[in-house]
Design a protein around this nucleic acid. Structure first.
Ligand code: MN
Ligand code: MN
Ligand code: ZN
Ligand code: ZN
Lengths: 154, 154
DNA sequence: TCTCGACTTGGACGAAGTCCAAACTAGGTC
DNA sequence: GACCTAGTTTGGACTTCGTCCAAGTCGAGA
């Protein structure tokens, strides 16, 4: 966390309270938050922070490679501070829970020359979709598709 | 295509001109269209068709398993009539081109019992991101990130 | 402390999608 | 063919997520 701030200062980032707070929220709880969730948590520490600044800061962190942008469904993007260990995502389509799955060696096949169509490939996203244990249990009785919002620690 | 309509009639679908036209657009050109692109093309055949109906129809086709909903980025969802052969997607992050990659046997590792966390997994989405040959070529000169909108036949 | 370019802010704007009450119609019945 | 009605369609209002911008603020080097 302090690491992060040091690294950012070196890449000539002006260290503002807003940026500090956003970084703090992200590394603090390692879940896959949406921009608005980050904003809500940041606003607890710094009430005047604006949505625009949160979007700006998240965008910068993404281009600096410090945070990963994850698109799970067509809804809000999620921001993932876990960039050191490559991993995939396991998503519950019923409640929105998101878990990290460590990638195992040679996991997403590196796309043989033939099927690459001349592309230069620089990332692979893998998303497993299914139903989590809780939702499976709750399934026999009454289906309660539950409030959205993924929360899964890696 | 006529196949599709027959199948749908059997699942007691009321065969309206709107639905016929949407189906026609989808199977007609096998690209990954957004809902609004489907609407535009459908409107050429049936000018009065509304956006709401296109959204409704696409949603129904998805739940009937006749069309696959693909989330490439945080933008508009795309609708993929290729549901018979499982496949992944190869996306150009520069121009938006989307290509189908046939899945090879046991390709997305079926997620070993241990890393399944009690989930019942029923789908895996794999997206390769990179740069297409055209964008690579155009790259040395002047970077022209080009109009969005994927078009790739399978 | 001063200065200035980088940063922040709120509000307007835009894209994608959902919702709903009123109007319409496919297809079964006579 | 005329009739009926439940299933469909429609346009517009509304929601969510995100971007943009002109004006004001502030971090940090001198
Ligand atoms: Mn993650
Ligand atoms: Mn496809
Ligand atoms: Zn669940
Ligand atoms: Zn391209």
């Amino acid at each position: 966390m302090d690491d992060l701030l040091t690294r950012l200062r070196q890449r000539d980032w002006r260290l503002t309270s807003q940026r500090r707070v956003v970084a703090e929220v992200l590394v603090g709880e390692h879940v896959h938050l949406t921009a608005d969730e980050v904003h809500a948590r940041a606003a607890e520490l710094l009430p005047e922070i604006s949505r625009a600044t949160v979007y700006n800061t998240l965008g910068e962190l993404v281009s600096l490679g410090e945070v990963r942008e994850v698109t799970i469904d067509g809804r809000a993007k999620r921001y993932d501070p876990n960039v050191t260990g490559l991993h995939h995502h396991l998503v519950c389509t019923s409640c929105g829970l998101i878990l990290d799955i460590p990638a195992i060696a040679g996991d997403p096949s590196p796309l043989a020359r033939g099927s690459r169509f001349g592309f230069v490939v620089d990332a692979v996203d893998v998303t497993y979709r299914g139903t989590c244990p809780d939702c499976l249990a709750m399934d026999g009785e009454r289906r309660v598709p539950q409030a959205r919002g993924g929360s899964g620690r890696s």
